[in-house]
Amino acid sequence: MSSLVEVKGVGKVYPGGAKIAALAGIDLTIARGEFTALAGPSGSGKSTLLNLIGTLDRPSEGTIAYEGRVVSSLDAETLSDFRLRALGFVFQAYNLIPVLTAVENVEYPLVLQGVPARTRRAFALEALDWVCLSEYAERRPDLLSGGQQQRVAVARAIVARPSLVLADEPTANLDSKTGAQLLDLMESLNQEHGITLLFSSHDGAVLERARRVVRLQDGRLKSDEARPR
């Protein structure tokens, strides 16, 4: 598999009175089509690394490259464009826009891309179909369950066909059954549609589903384990 993301010597220090090194010396390569989990206890640096790979934050040291292009030093506007076209995000707290319906939430990345209304609605409905939520397309988030909201978030993350979907503790707010269903969904998106997925979790049952588990501890890479099925 070809390399999609290359993280080289990345560290992150948060400014403040006592400077805290959240990450140090991280080297990691994510190949296209992978289904990778970032594991580690709370405070190990999982979310920080996801934010850096997702270009939501900048590393204090080192570089992050996508398909050979270093993105960690790009300006804010260029990074926005990059995220818009290359990345999808799923957050722990779903983070849907409450005033928009499910389908409007899903189509929003396409709105930002300037895709014509009819096309983007078709793509959004297709994405909702992939996550089995077509019938809830016109509902607002407050009328959906937590699991449904997270599936809408997944649909939003994949609607623009990104190279990489990043999910930060996507099952943390869900019960175990709904969490398992979401993982089924993510797995099928990875296998059937070839979407590269990188997600963080500290739940052992969730990590069991990943084909590669990268473990972090105290901001450093502890292990990188492939799990062929």
């Binding site: 464009d81 995220r83 930002l112 891309q113």
Partner: peptide, 11 residues
Amino acid sequence: VLMAIGARPRW
């Protein structure tokens, strides 16, 4: 969230 999904600051 909007910035994460690609909204530019000026947007």
